[in-house]
Amino acid sequence: MSQLLQAAAYGVVQGGLLGLVAVGFSLVWGVMNVINLSHGALAVTGAYLAWLLNLHFGLDPFLALPVVAIALFLFGYALQRGLINLVINAPIFLTLLLTFGLGLVILNSLQLLFNADDRTIETSYASQSLALGTVNVPYGRLAACGLALAITVGLAAVMTRTRLGHSISATGMDRGAARLMGIRARHVYAITFGISAALAGVAGTMIATVGSFNPTTTPGQLTLDAFVISVLGGLGNMYGALVGGLVLGIAESVGGLVLTGTWVNAIAMAVLILTLIVRPSGLIGKAQYSGRVEV
């Protein structure tokens, strides 16, 4: 029982982090209809940046977050403005390929710069944890998860309360109409992608603090997780992404306890496919987008 509780607690904090990875991914998908296969690579870019800042300046990863976020925002803005906007109206497999190629370029550059070793950001509080009865939750994870929650709530507020947020939502719903209203779609798209990249960078930093990362396997795994979570949570739905992350986190840690091997991954894929077939709008999303053929 205590083992199960421990697994559940771990799942919740891990899920919060995965949710943060997925929020940005889901935002880009919902607004621009682009599946960004380089999302995981952007997250790992953020992780390396924070790792470098920690290594050379001893900067705490939590304090490095603003730097990472701004750097990744600018990088993301430039990518969208200079590259992805060029093919934004192309058939889907072209945008998929473009972001895949982009991911290859980013993660191979990282690998050439830093080699393929597993890295982690060392902190003094890494080994300390909060004891709740028999359950131990490391402070780092707890803080990371809390931050993920706060950022998601903050982003949702930006999207629903601010002029920028309204511009982004409007462009996502109907680009033509938004442009007629004087919204500069190119700029809005670039900002959206910038925000998504910044969120990826922050999530990557947190993952680097509470665990380890490398340029070969981490990006793909994160992108795939973001995929699953976005589908579970519904596209462009911030809270959906967070809930999806929690569902996946808990399912993976509890499932890992109950099931042998990596069956839990197979089950995650089965859930993904079933969700797509039965409820393409996501588990908690509104049925606003039909991915199905009506014949």
Partner: peptide, 25 residues
């Protein structure tokens, strides 16, 4: 094949990842 566009792409990706995991286990 009842799914469209991105949804078909993801679902097939999921099917491939899932079948690898099944073989793996």
């Amino acid at each position: 094949l009842r799914l469209r566009g991105h949804y078909f792409a993801i679902a097939t990706l999921g099917a491939a990842e899932g079948s690898r995991e099944v073989i793996n286990n």
